[in-house]
Design a protein around this nucleic acid. Structure first.
Lengths: 191, 191
DNA sequence: GGAGGGAGTAAGACCGGTCTGTCTCCTACC
DNA sequence: GGTAGGAGACAGACCGGTCTTACTCCCTCC
């Protein structure tokens, strides 16, 4: 039998599953405790408040989702920089078809908590980090106006995620088609 | 002095402001009561539950926002069918720059309540209604594959709304540029 | 026209449940 | 034996929803 993970890891694992699938307000700390088989005092020893736990969840989400699944997945699939950009939507396509598809936690938390709330602010920062990855890929591809490109690209990413949440599992393919046109319009030299 | 609106209207007005600006879970029925200057029994006489009140809010949101602001606004601004489609993002541009910009309530409620919950289901239906408007405009414009067109177009709409919620007030212009390319690709005959 | 009654409303007490967060008590292990 | 952790009671706040009380208005009927 495997040795059980230390309490802090169990808490973070449980929080990740619950928060990513069901959102923040719908999940109480007690549910996190039960799933991680941890006492309340232990949870509050490691995290001073629920908000702090959510912040830790968002950081883990960036590691696993933004960096692990999205960025690394796209970089693995494409050979050229442009292929890697487009592969972002291949990763999304596979993600949208998974039955445990859970949407973008950063968007979810932002809309659940709104601007102004610390968790909303943090989510905005993590979304900006995603745009930075796109921008860097666009620079590798030699595109022009990479900041504007990344913002437009991000519109396609977020819009397709919402559509997938509505039930359109093919939203990534539609977004990818528009993404191709966007690349075309950002090729040097000025068209 | 103007005569006060009947209680039901006062309740719906208060619910509209509160729910559209702050979401569902963050607003308690007591806050709706206070703002509408209505007693609790009165609220529960007109609406059997908070969920029923939220459903009424969503219906009013469709009337005011989907039909009143978005569709009517776009139809007023454009002369040709294609201009009317693109004018959707002119309406968005103005909306994004308003200081009381509140995002798309249907997306907000869907992400707050999730699939499965009756309010999430209702939101998905109202989002489908938006796509039906886009589809009908696309048919007027003589575009081909109008269902797929409307789904792609909707990705641009929702993505730009999320970007605006993040703080990018110019998201509508970026989406409009991609929208132009999308129209181009859906012109008859097959390009 | 005046009395009576019923419907609608305001104000708010109240109930059961849930939430976050604190605290106590006990066990196990190093 | 001291520290970390499990189990859970507890506090204080808030939630949705029910119910009571008192008042006002309007319709009706004599």
């Amino acid at each position: 039998m495997q040795t059980e993970l230390p309490p802090r890891e169990r808490i973070l694992d449980a929080a990740y599953e619950l928060f990513s699938q069901r959102g923040i307000r719908d999940v109480g700390v007690e549910e996190v405790m039960v799933r991680s088989r941890v006492a309340k005092a232990t949870l509050y020893r490691h995290f001073p408040s629920k908000d702090a736990l959510v912040l830790a969840f968002l950081a883990r989400r960036e590691q696993r989702w933004t960096l692990g699944m999205v960025e690394a997945g796209a970089r693995d699939r494409g050979r050229t920089p442009e292929e890697r950009l487009l592969a972002l939507f291949d990763v999304f396509d596979e993600w949208f078809h998974r039955d445990d598809f859970d949407g973008c936690s950063f968007v979810n938390v932002l809309l659940e908590m709104r601007w102004g709330h610390p968790l909303g602010r943090a989510s905005i920062q993590y979304l900006e980090n995603i745009r930075a990855i796109v921008r860097s890929m666009a620079e590798e591809a030699g595109l022009r106006d990479t900041d504007s490109f990344a913002r437009s690209w991000h519109i396609l990413m977020k819009g397709s995620i919402i559509s997938a949440a509505e039930g359109d599992a093919d939203a990534a393919r539609r977004a990818q088609a528009m993404a191709r046109a966007l690349i075309e319009q950002h090729r040097r030299p000025q068209s």
